[in-house]
């Protein structure tokens, strides 16, 4: 069991990285990766919301939607739940952890409409994970997002210094750099099977 959880966790970080392999959550990846601080803040917020959203959506799917044969409603229901959760999290943080609230700032409401969050909750269901596996998978996805953001903010700070051709300045060279980082993550393919033997 522990081996399987570890395999899921590390494969979400390296092999099935949400940003670099599944291309989910590209908007914050390109939008907030300019500075290391905001990149880390956004990633931590995403990780927290991913885990909480999975903890809320998995039971609702299996104990409310499945008995009523409403599996096809999962997208709408999940969007609803994630929106409520993020709002609630924002209120709670504002009350009890004002410094963290100020640090996350505008990123928290942005997460409401982040495809990576909806993606992780739906893929957890599609992969047939049980509750523990789903939670570990979400945490791994969040950490993977953090890793991609931190790596890429380093790449971006180098791009700022570089002098690309004028037509490549700004977003184009950023996209080229993102694709190279994504390519480098393909090197992790197969590593999980080799280490954990699953």
């Amino acid at each position: 069991m522990a081996v399987k959880l570890a395999a899921i966790f590390f494969s979400m970080i390296f092999v099935d990285n949400y940003v670099l392999s599944k291309f989910l959550g590209i908007c914050p990846f390109l939008g907030v990766s300019k500075k290391l601080n905001s990149a880390v803040g956004m990633s931590v917020a995403v990780t927290v919301v991913m885990v909480i959203a999975t903890a809320a959506t998995w039971p609702i799917y299996h104990y409310i939607l499945v008995p009523n044969e409403l599996e096809y409603m999962q997208t709408i229901v999940f969007i609803l739940i994630i929106a409520v959760l993020v709002q609630l999290l924002e209120t709670v943080l504002k009350k009890f952890l004002p410094p963290l609230y100020a640090a996350l700032g505008v990123y928290l409401p942005l997460i409401t409409t982040n495809c990576a969050i909806l993606g992780v909750t739906i893929l957890n269901i599609d992969n047939g994970y049980n509750f523990a596996e789903a939670l570990v998978c979400s945490a791994g996805a969040g950490i993977g997002f953090l890793l991609a953001m931190v790596l890429f903010s380093g790449v971006r700070s180098r791009i700022e210094e570089a002098k690309p051709p004028k037509c490549f300045e700004g977003l184009p060279i950023t996209l080229v750099a993102a694709s190279l980082v994504s390519l480098s993550f393909m090197g992790f393919g197969g590593i999980i099977e080799a280490i954990f033997g699953v």
Partner: peptide
Amino acid sequence: VVVSIGIVGALIL
């Protein structure tokens, strides 16, 4: 089901 989930969410908020 969707309406009741929405109402519960709204109440919580």
